[in-house]
Amino acid sequence: MSVPNQLSSLEPRSHVEARSPAPRWPDGHRSCVALAFDLDGPTGDAMLDGSIWRNPSYFTLGSYGPWRALGRLLDLLNERRVPATFFVPAWVVENWPKQCAAILDGGHEIAYHGYRHEAFWTLDRDAQRAVMARSAEVFERYLGVRPVGFRTPSGDWGPDTIGVLLEAGVRYSSSMRGDDRPYLLHAPGSAEPMVEIPGRWELDDYASLAYHRNPDFPASLDRIASYDTTFDNWRREFDGSHRDGLCLTTLFHPKVSGKPGRIALLEKLLDHMRGQGAKADADPGHGHGHGSVWFATCRDVAQWWLDHNVSTQARGVSA
């Protein structure tokens, strides 16, 4: 079956590549975890259509993320010595600059996530360019950085998006679902590929834990799952990825999983992941890193993938 021209750049790889062995990660690590959080705050559809200004409850639900949950989450990451990537709408940076600066102070990466969480697939090329230009200006003015990563706020993008991102200096995306390893995206007219670090809905905390009655989002039946079941689901996804030597990234949200009771799920998950390294270290027959997990920011994963999967002439994605 042929692929429409506007989607051809999103093809992850050939059938031969799909059968290739698991990648070799740095220092002999068995698998990779790129822990990632979407710090959306109150941005999104309700802000874009203006209805959030008539709904204080929904606004405060979102603002809880940067205002309260983020600090708790950064403490956890510091205690476990795990780096993470935060995809942040620029509007959130404007309104909580000190909290966002704490992400960088903690040694983590901050990356693009639209200005007010726009659905990029609904925007034409000029509108997408405007969002990226405004976002870049905000990150530079408030944080002094120019991100090189992007996660589409809407879970999809249009035929112009990859070109707009490359023009804006973006060198990797974590938006698509085409594999459980990074892969390269090629844009017409661009010699340098973009790295895609695909996420998975199974590792989205909204699927299990989000609830709000008005607007009814996410719309479903039981919208808060058992915490034990949620942890078991996440653990099993990691175990499969680690067993096969793959790359796992998350779509977690501080306002959802950064609450006092739920953050214990993240603690257990990180301890379980890190426990793989302890098991490997206890086996004297294995070398350094064998069996353990490479925890890295999405930026570092993208750079490593470029270095090992394109020619030596490929430029880096460092900020």
Rank of each mutant, 00 (worst) to 15 (best):
R146A: 03
D40Q: 14
R223N: 13
D222K: 10
G258P: 06
L306K: 05
R13F: 08
G114F: 02
A187P: 06
Y206C: 13
G275T: 09
T152S: 08
D75T: 09
M1T: 03
C247G: 08
Y172H: 13
M132R: 09
G107N: 02
I103Y: 12
R72H: 06
S175R: 13
G316V: 07
L104W: 01
P23C: 07
F295P: 02
R181N: 13
D49R: 07
Y183H: 12
V164R: 01
A127M: 15
G144A: 10
I197E: 05
L104Y: 10
W201T: 09
L185K: 05
N95G: 03
W53G: 02
R129E: 14
N78W: 15
L185A: 02
Y112C: 04
F238P: 07
V148I: 02
F120C: 03
F87Q: 14
A278Y: 12
S241Y: 12
S57A: 09
D124F: 13
F150H: 12
Q276T: 13
F120T: 02
R315S: 08
R24S: 11
P23K: 06
P56N: 14
D244G: 14
P254W: 00
D156C: 07
S190N: 06
Y64C: 05
E137I: 11
V131H: 00
D216C: 14
H15T: 05
W305P: 12
A296S: 02
V256Q: 14
G199A: 10
T230G: 01
L76A: 09
D216L: 10
E11Y: 08
D75G: 04
C247N: 04
I224L: 10
Y64V: 03
C247L: 04
I162W: 15
D232H: 12
P42Y: 08
R141L: 10
L39K: 08
G289M: 03
A133L: 10
A314C: 08
D49P: 01
P26S: 09
R181F: 01
P26D: 03
T60M: 02
E94H: 07
C298M: 00
M194Y: 09
R213W: 11
L306E: 01
M47A: 13
Y112N: 04
S241L: 14
S9N: 13
L185E: 02
R13H: 08
C298I: 00
L70H: 10
A282W: 14
A133Q: 07
E237I: 11
S220H: 07
W96D: 11
G199D: 02
Q128N: 13
S311P: 13
L77N: 06
A187E: 08
V293Y: 06
F295I: 00
S173G: 01
S2R: 03
